[in-house]
C-alpha cells in the first residue's frame, strides 16, 4: 500500500511538468502581449514597452523563458507577480486558508444534501419524493451561481440584515464571524454540487437495488434499512467517489463568480485576474498548486475505491 501511494505521488512530478509545458504552450497561442497590459495607459510608448519586455525577459525566445522559469521553480522560487510585484508563493499561501475553508464547507453541504436526497429518490423511485428531489436539484443546477448569490445577498444582507454581504474573516480570528461570512457562498457552491451528487447517488442506488445479492438479502428478511445501508449504498458510492474527487478539486481551484459575488479572496479570482492581466508567473503558480491537488485527490479516490470494494484492490 505504502509503495502504491509513493508511486502515485511520484507520478505528480511528470504531471506538473506536463502542466507547466501546457500552460507555456497556451501562452504562445494566447493573444494579449503582457507588456501592453502591464503598460496600462502608458502602452503607446515603445520605449516603455521595450523596457518592460527586457525586464521580464519577454524579448527572449519562449524556450529560454521557460527554462529560466523552470530553473527558479526547481530552486523553490515561484517568482514574482508581474502586476503587483509580490512573491507568487506568498500570495498563494495567503489565499489557501480561505479557499480550503470555503471548499470544505461547500463540499460538506453538497454531501449532506445530495447523498441523502439521492438515496431517498432511489428508494421512492418514480414517486413524489423522487420527482421533488429531481426538480429541486436540477433547478439548483440550472440557476447560475451569480444569480443565486445576488438573491441571497439581497434577501439576507440587504433586506433582513442577518448576514454580512461580503468580506472574509479568518477562522482563527473569529470563528463565528468567519462562518457568517462563508455560509452563503458555501451554500451557493454546495447546492450546485449537491445536484450532481444527488443524481449520481440516485442512479447508482437504483442499479444497486436491482442487483441479485440485494434481492437475496431482502429475501432473507433483513430489515430494509440494513440492506440499503450495507449492500446497496456501498456499491452505489463508486461514481460518487469519482465525482466527489473531481468536484472537490474544482472547488479547491476556486469559483470565480461566487467569490466575486461575495468578495471572497480565493483562488478563482486570483487566477482569472492573473489571466486577464497576463500575469503569467501567477497563472503558473496557481495552476501548479491546483495540479498537485488534483493528483492527490484522485489518489484518494483510488484508495477509496479499494475501501469500498476490496476486489478492486488488485486493479
Amino acid at each position: 500500500m505504502a509503495r502504491f501511494i509513493a508511486a502515485r505521488l511520484g507520478q505528480a512530478i511528470p504531471t506538473l511538468w506536463f502542466v507547466s509545458i501546457l500552460i507555456f504552450g497556451l501562452q504562445l497561442l494566447m493573444p494579449g502581449d503582457p507588456a501592453l497590459i502591464l503598460a496600462g495607459e502608458e502602452r503607446g510608448d515603445p520605449q516603455v514597452l521595450a523596457q518592460i519586455r527586457a525586464e521580464l525577459f519577454l524579448d527572449r525566445p519562449l524556450v529560454e523563458q521557460y527554462l529560466r522559469w523552470l530553473g527558479r521553480v526547481l530552486a523553490g522560487d515561484l517568482g514574482f507577480s508581474w502586476r503587483i510585484r509580490e512573491p507568487v508563493a506568498a500570495v498563494i499561501l495567503a489565499k489557501l486558508p480561505v479557499t480550503v475553508q470555503l471548499a470544505l464547507m461547500a463540499f460538506a453541504i453538497a454531501c449532506l444534501l445530495g447523498i441523502p436526497a439521492g438515496i431517498a429518490s432511489a428508494l421512492w423511485k418514480d414517486r413524489a419524493p423522487d420527482w421533488i428531489a429531481n426538480g429541486v436539484a436540477l433547478a439548483g443546477l440550472s440557476t447560475p451561481n451569480f444569480w443565486l448569490g445576488i438573491m441571497l445577498i439581497l434577501l439576507f444582507s440587504v433586506h433582513l440584515g442577518w448576514l454580512p454581504p461580503s468580506g472574509y474573516v479568518p477562522l482563527a480570528e473569529d470563528w463565528r464571524r468567519s462562518l457568517a461570512t462563508t455560509v452563503m457562498p458555501a451554500f451557493v457552491l454546495g447546492t450546485g454540487i449537491a445536484a450532481v451528487f444527488m443524481r449520481h447517488t440516485r442512479s447508482a442506488m437504483v442499479q444497486a437495488l436491482a442487483e441479485d445479492y440485494v434481492r437475496t438479502a431482502r429475501a432473507k428478511g433483513l430489515a430494509e434499512r440494513v440492506v440499503v445501508a450495507k449492500h446497496a449504498l456501498r456499491n452505489a458510492l463508486i461514481p460518487v467517489v469519482t465525482l466527489g474527487a473531481l468536484e472537490l478539486g474544482t472547488l479547491l481551484s476556486g469559483a470565480v463568480l461566487t467569490e466575486q459575488v461575495f468578495t471572497i479572496p480565493g483562488f478563482g479570482k486570483l487566477i482569472v485576474d492573473a489571466v486577464f492581466n497576463r500575469d503569467y508567473p501567477m497563472v503558473q503558480g496557481v495552476v501548479l498548486v491546483t495540479a498537485v491537488l488534483y493528483v492527490v485527490l484522485n489518489l484518494v479516490a483510488d484508495l477509496l475505491y479499494a475501501v469500498i470494494d476490496p476486489r478492486l484492490r488488485t486493479a
Binding site: I150, P165, S166, V261, F262
Partner: peptide
C-alpha cells in the same frame, strides 16, 4: 461587479 458593490453599500458593508 457593479451589482455586488451596490448591494454591499445598501447592506451597510
Amino acid at each position: 461587479d457593479d451589482t455586488v458593490r451596490f448591494a454591499n453599500l445598501q447592506a451597510g458593508a
